[in-house]
Every structure is written in structure tokens, then in C-alpha cells.
Design a protein around this nucleic acid. Structure first.
Lengths: 342, 342
DNA sequence: CTGTTAGCGCGTTCAG
DNA sequence: CTGAACGCGCTAACAG
């Protein structure tokens, strides 16, 4: 007689299944967990499996976690869901977690408290491991990280102290941007960099100056302007750049949102893109292809970054060093914002 | 002697603390959980608390969950992290969860498997309640929902069957858009609607036709075009709209990405926005203010939607009906894409 | 004011 | 091939 999952009022446990199948609960447990060392008569196994679906048995995950000291959950803490860059990192991380038999959950504290506080909430017991993406290092965060007794890893942010991180080769993305501009004949190239506190911004800046030097190009200090990672920040920086006596003919902007601001500012100054100024940026987000003119960008493997982070977290001993720099599969996406020097 | 959290190799438990403080573990438990009915000598309490920090005791969440049948975690399943609309819903939900003493985690299955599968992974034991945002209803999902023994709620999607949802008054947003265009003197107003399978798109369409009727305006069938919620979808729909013999002077687009596509298409047709055609859309995402011309939009309280969803999930009995329609705090954000009829 | 007791549901020996 | 027994760490009731 099939009673269906909803028949009983109380929750079905191993014991119930065992009783229904006429075996001990230990057998049921080993059937459920596919214990390869279990030698069982096929008919018994069938009877157990029938009882499981019949009663609608679902393992109690808390009990299992208590017993095994594993939750099957991996956590990812990000500063902000509205940044499209994280969307791709999450996608890659979720996929990798899934294929390793885990589930990945993401949190950010909704701006209410700092992401660091979320670390605290997820840490110790709720998840088996923690990924921390981006954000600025803080002593509060460091303290929590130190107290964590589960493995963790920094994603898209370097940390000289802990030496546990997976990052992209941001310097290379700057290199590729400069390369592209040089190929188009530009020599008067400026850079709008991100805030000094942002690790990725610093690496892009380094890459920019290196690339310029490689091509024997000089970069006067006035050609490097720091701007916030926002539209207004980009606009402001562009205004400053264009007020100098020798205007650049091309700009590498460290951030897409800022690049959009640059576009607006140049339009306001009656400068044509790419006619008067070429603009290239890092990160190929949706925004880049939606603006007019559509932005030429360097696309980095963000999904792969998320996936590698999960795999490293899983494969590496908690105290071991992980310093991974992803430099493959970078693509220059040519769109309308760059053109040969007239 | 202060041994510090890292002294012992094994994990510190209640018993360890009890031994150190010279009391029973039950006392420690009640101190940790701030049991108000606990009558305890201040000095004893101090001794217990000292032992807790001294040994670096952290409760084992799995054991607590097993005992209390609560995890303190709320889950949110979304179809896709790259949609900025969800970023705001998440922010509101996280904040509300936090202030209720829970932590909210979000998952989407990274496109690898269906979000419905994620429901399965989070359901039953890992979280105390589940929010399901957007997405298209599927029989697979329905089956999982039916089997869930934790409370759940649909967010930003209606469900006539289950009657457990919190949504925004999308029809009102359409109303406001039409209202705005009518005030500007427009009468030849078209609508680019979303896919028929999308619940929000349907409600916006209804709102649009209602609003038009209220103003005694006729809407020939050719003035309503269905387009995907993408840039290309919008562009295609705009092309169709503009190829008709009597062109509209204003368009209400159901979706921001589509609206950006409309902008591109109109530019390609050498039509000026807002000179020749006014464009207004729903959802005030970052994209809306970044394009040129910046889009006039109807801003809906997405954060509030997320927050209300969490509160409803927490406050409502699992089998009770929840049909919440948020209609307050809608704002028309005037930008550059709409203008009075010449 | 504090200690004792009894499971929560599960996985893992170890006997048989 | 299968069952009995133990304990993971915690909370809730009740006894003192």
C-alpha cells in the first residue's frame, strides 16, 4: 500500500524506513549513502529502496552534519550584488561546486552590515568552506578570517599576508588594451585608474605603465588620473584629462562604469569617440555592449575564476599556500569605441 | 591562564566550558542562549562567560540545528545573478533577514542546472524557509515545492495555484508611464511588451491597455509588439513598430534592456529621442541612467519587495495564503528620453 | 539557583 | 550478509 510522502504527520526517519523494509537502520543508511563495501542481496536492496520512496524519506541534513562534520555547503561572500562582475564569478563558482557535489550559496549582508560580518555569520559550522570575493581588506575581516576553523580563500583579491588567493592577471588586461591602441597607431595614451585601495586597479595600473615602457612610450604623470569606479568618477577624470594642454588620443579606463562616464563627458565636450579619442576598458559586461558607441573591452575569464576558486578551496589543505594567477583566455573584444589614429 | 582559542587541537564544546567554569553544561547552554528564565549568580555567570572567551568556544551549529530543528538560514533562489533587478531584491531580503536574526543566502545553480534543482538542494534541512524569485513556473519546480516541508514564498511572481506570493503592482508602473506620456501630450502611444510566459510582462501589458482606455485612447493591435527582454528583442520590436504606416510618438517599453535596444534602433533609423519619439520604461537600473539619452523610468520598490518577502515568510503560517501586492513608493524618474509632443 | 536525564537522527564500528 | 550499540554536541524538561 502506497501511503505517499504526505501520509504521516511526523517526519520520516531512517528507523521508519528500516521498520517498513524489515531491516536495520544501519542497512538503510548504507543504501542511502551508496556504501560500496555493503554486500546486500539485490532483493533486500530493492525492498529498502521501495520503502524509501514509499515513505518519502529524506535524510535529516542537520543530523548528518553533526555526525560527519560536513554540511555540503560552500559559502561565497561578496561586497555587492549589483556589480555585474560578481554575477559571472558566482556562476562559475556555483557550477564548479555543483559538479563536486556541493551547493554554493552567496551572501553580501545587503549593505546593512559589512561583508565581514557576514563572514562571521556563515563561518564555523554553517558551511564547509568560504570564498571571499573582492572588497577592501579590513582588520575586522582579518580577525574573523584568523578565527575561522574552515578553509577559506580570497577571490579576485590578492593578500600578501595570507597567501591564499585566486586572481586574474589584471596587468595583462592592461597590456592587451595598450597593445590594441598602439596597433591602431596611438602614442598619446592616457590611463584612468581605479582607487589606490583597490587591488585590481593597482595591478592594471602597473600593467599599463609596463606596457607603455615596452613600446618606448612615455607617460607623463598628468596622463594618469585616478577616478572612482563609477560613471561620475570616470566623467570627472576625463574632464581633467582633456583640460591638459596636450590631449591624449586614446584612453585606457580601468573600469566599465567609469568608461561609460568617460563617453558621456567626451560627448559633452563635443569630442567624437572614436573619431577624436579612442576608449578601451577592462571587463566585458552587458553595459559595455549597450552604450553608444559600444565599448571595446578586454574580456577576462570571470566564470573560470569562480570555478578555479571553488576547486582550489576543495583541493588544497586549509593551511597551504594558494597563489593562483589566471592569465589564459583573455580576449580583446573590438567594438566601436576604438579606431586607428587619423 | 589564558590559553587562547587556538590552544587545543580538538574543537571546544559545551562540556569543556562547563568543566572549566565548574558548572554543568546545561548552565553554559542557557548562558550562551541568553535564557531569560535562568536565575544565576552574577559571579557564576561571569565565570562561565570568562571560560567561553578563554577557551574560544563556538557553538556547533549542526548540533543545535539537530536539536531545535532550525538552522537560522533563509534561502533565496533566483534564475540569474546577472539581472540587476535581483540585486536589489536580494539587498532588501538580506537586510530584513539580518534584523530578524537570520542569515539569507542566495543561489541560482549558475546556469548549469535549472534553478528548480537548486530548490531541491536547499530544501529540507539546509534552510528554514525558501524564497523563490521570478523565473518561469515549471512542473518540475511545482513538484519540488509540493514536497517541501519548510515554508516557502514566491517573490515577484504570481501563482494562482499556491496563493503564496509577494509581487509589485506592475500594472501601476505601466499606468504611471502612460500617464507621464499623456501629460506630455502624446496620444499615439505604443507598447513593447515582454514574453507571454512572463508574469510581470503580462501585468504591465494589462496596466498599459487599462491606462490607455482610461484616457480614451485607442490602441490598435499593431501598436503592441512582443519582444524578448533583451537589447536585440527591443531593437527588433522597435523596427516593427516604426515600419507601420502611422508611427507612434511615444513608446512604453516593459523592460530596460529592451528599451536600450529601442534607443539603438531609433538611432539607426535616424530618429531622435526624445525629439521624434519619447521612450519610457519600467525598472530604474544602473543601465537606465548610463545610456544616452538617459532613460525616463518608473522606479519600483525592489528592496522593499525583498524585505516584505522575508517578513511574510517568517510571519505567516506555512499553509496560509499570502497575496501581497506592493503599490506604494513608485516614482517616475524623469530623464532625457521623454519630452512634450512637438 | 544548579545538576541530571533524555533524546534529536544519523553514520560507523564490531559482532555475529 | 545483517543487527546492536555508541556517540556527535546540543537543548529542554524536570528534579533537587
Amino acid at each position: 500500500m502506497t501511503r505517499g510522502p504526505r501520509a504521516g504527520t511526523k517526519r520520516v526517519t531512517l528507523v521508519d524506513v528500516a521498520a517498513a523494509a524489515g531491516v536495520d537502520k544501519a542497512i538503510v543508511s548504507r543504501v542511502v549513502n551508496r556504501d560500496p563495501t555493503l554486500l546486500i542481496r539485490p532483493e533486500t536492496r530493492t525492498r529498502v529502496e521501495a520503502a524509501i520512496v514509499d515513505l518519502g524519506y529524506r535524510p535529516n541534513l542537520s543530523a548528518r552534519s553533526l555526525r560527519t562534520a560536513k554540511t555540503g555547503i560552500l559559502g561565497l561572500v561578496i561586497p555587492d550584488f549589483s556589480n555585474p562582475v560578481y554575477a559571472q564569478i558566482i556562476a562559475g563558482a556555483e557550477a564548479a561546486a555543483l559538479s563536486s557535489g556541493n551547493v554554493l550559496v552567496t551572501g553580501s549582508a545587503g549593505g546593512a552590515v559589512s561583508p565581514a560580518a557576514y563572514l562571521d555569520l556563515l563561518g564555523n559550522g554553517r558551511v564547509d568552506g568560504l570564498l571571499i570575493a573582492g572588497g577592501a581588506p579590513s582588520t575586522q575581516e582579518q580577525r574573523i578570517l584568523d578565527g575561522l576553523d574552515i578553509p577559506w580563500l580570497l577571490v579576485n583579491r590578492r593578500d600578501r599576508k595570507s597567501r591564499r588567493y585566486v586572481i586574474l592577471d589584471d596587468a595583462k588586461s592592461a597590456h592587451m588594451a595598450v597593445e590594441h591602441l598602439v596597433e591602431l597607431g596611438h602614442t598619446e595614451i592616457a590611463h584612468i585608474a581605479g582607487p589606490k585601495t583597490t587591488d585590481t586597479a593597482q595591478r592594471r595600473l602597473t600593467g599599463f605603465t609596463e606596457a607603455m615602457e615596452e613600446h618606448g612610450l612615455r607617460t607623463p604623470a598628468s596622463r594618469i588620473v585616478v577616478g572612482e569606479y563609477t560613471m561620475d568618477g570616470g566623467a570627472e577624470a576625463a574632464a581633467k584629462l582633456m583640460s591638459s594642454r596636450r590631449r591624449p588620443t586614446a584612453i585606457y579606463v580601468a573600469n566599465v562604469a567609469a568608461a561609460v562616464g568617460v563617453l558621456h563627458q567626451l560627448a559633452a565636450l563635443d569630442l567624437s569617440v572614436p573619431g577624436d579619442v579612442s576608449v578601451v576598458t577592462t571587463h566585458d559586461t552587458e553595459l559595455a555592449s549597450h552604450v553608444m558607441p559600444a565599448l571595446t573591452t578586454v574580456r577576462m575569464p570571470l566564470r573560470e575564476l569562480g570555478a578555479r576558486a571553488v576547486r582550489s578551496l576543495l583541493d588544497t589543505p586549509p593551511d597551504a599556500q594558494v597563489e593562483l594567477l589566471l592569465a589564459d583566455d583573455f580576449t580583446l573584444v573590438r567594438r566601436e569605441s576604438t579606431a586607428p589614429l587619423a
